[in-house]
Design a protein around this nucleic acid. Structure first.
Lengths: 204, 204
DNA sequence: CGAAATATTTAACCTATGTTAAAAAACGAC
DNA sequence: GTCGTTTTTTAACATAGGTTAAATATTTCG
């Protein structure tokens, strides 16, 4: 359900700031960009995107949270990332390559999203060349985030990873059900539950 | 040790092809680009780059192979990637952000590299705007490669990962000592040796 | 070529996490 | 608020991979 853009006050101010403050978009450029976005809603538990389908939108998560997960050969769901307000969601690999996505995106809370089609986005890149730099930066930061996650998985025990999560991504611990956190940390819910108990015992 | 560029015949033809064929560089643009690169050598076991130092070059691996590894809090080395001929090496996170690198690059064979400084590279980006697209693509592909690695670590057993390596990255199995492959697969050398033995038994 | 250093394999034992199953707690629709 | 569903916790047992140590095999270099 698209919403007219005079409802701009609904949009997280960080959305504008990212373009105007961080990348020097003019007010006109920002207004042009925004005019191509639609505001939509995804209800809790609904899927925003599914594996097997090509990702044809750039999507800003304005409110709520989603999990990004794949399904492996044995049919297990594996959570790759959680996304909260002010994140860009969607499989940029698929968006970039045109290949079917391997990721599913499911709302874990009622969500509001800002969506632009690939076609409009590509058109805008010709009108606003700064958008290319913005995009390249997004990719770079994504690559870095992935590298760091990889090193963490490689070097830390489950207990260490969970404690790091408590410090560094408290939103995840506060807003996400245990079963998905377990999948994110690459273990079974029972194992994470066990670790949680151990940590509580230590504190006493 | 820099080498004059009339020694162009030393350079892997894929180097030129990547720019000219894949990104539409003109002959002049390619010649300009090449003129800023130095051909250097890194002997087997020598370090090309070390953690803690900011990465100030874009570096093309013309011949040989390197391992890219970090050292975790317990002092364990963790191999993140192997690089062979026709790969770009170096910590692009550090290159991009200006922060000290967390990666070490060590030659596992005698290597030839083509190196350009960050300063020259940034200058060339203004002369050849296509270079921005080239760079953005590199970052995107890096992000994708990292995502895929993450999914593999999350979803496959050691034996499955090793068998995948045999099929998909035979160069690694053929050219890299076991201890580094083990680190790459995130296990101890003893465990990989055990798995190798199991696989041999199955074949008989 | 031969000695020393380094890398790989083997084996015995240990531990973290998986597996299965069931109980307890929390959530959600009516 | 209550009943049925879903999620989390607990427990007993199984197993992949870690740890330690020692035996082989391979490489390096004088």
């Amino acid at each position: 359900m698209a919403v007219p853009h005079h409802l701009e006050h609904l949009i997280n101010p960080k959305f504008k700031s990212a373009f105007v403050d961080s990348y020097g978009f003019t007010e006109d450029e920002y207004a042009l960009l925004l005019s191509y976005f639609d505001l939509k809603y995804v209800k809790k538990k609904e899927f925003y995107a599914r594996a097997g389908i090509v990702c044809k939108h750039k999507t800003y998560l304005n409110k709520g949270c989603m999990r990004n997960f794949t399904i492996d050969e044995q049919g297990h769901e594996r959570v790759l990332f959680f996304h909260f307000e002010d994140w860009w969601v969607g499989d940029f690999d698929s968006f970039y390559s045109g290949k079917p996505s391997v990721c599913n995106f499911q709302a874990l809370e009622d969500c509001e999203i800002l969506e632009i089609t690939q076609k409009d986005f590509n058109y805008l890149k010709t009108r606003i060349p700064k958008l290319n730099i913005w995009l390249a930066d997004k990719h770079t930061k994504k690559a870095i985030a992935n590298s760091q996650k990889m090193v963490e998985i490689k070097t830390l025990s489950l207990e260490e990873r969970y404690e790091r999560l408590l410090c560094q991504e408290p939103e995840v611990v506060n807003r996400i059900p245990l079963q998905y956190i377990a999948s994110y940390l690459n273990v079974e819910p029972q194992s994470l539950s066990r670790v949680r108990k151990n940590i509580q015992c230590k504190k006493k």
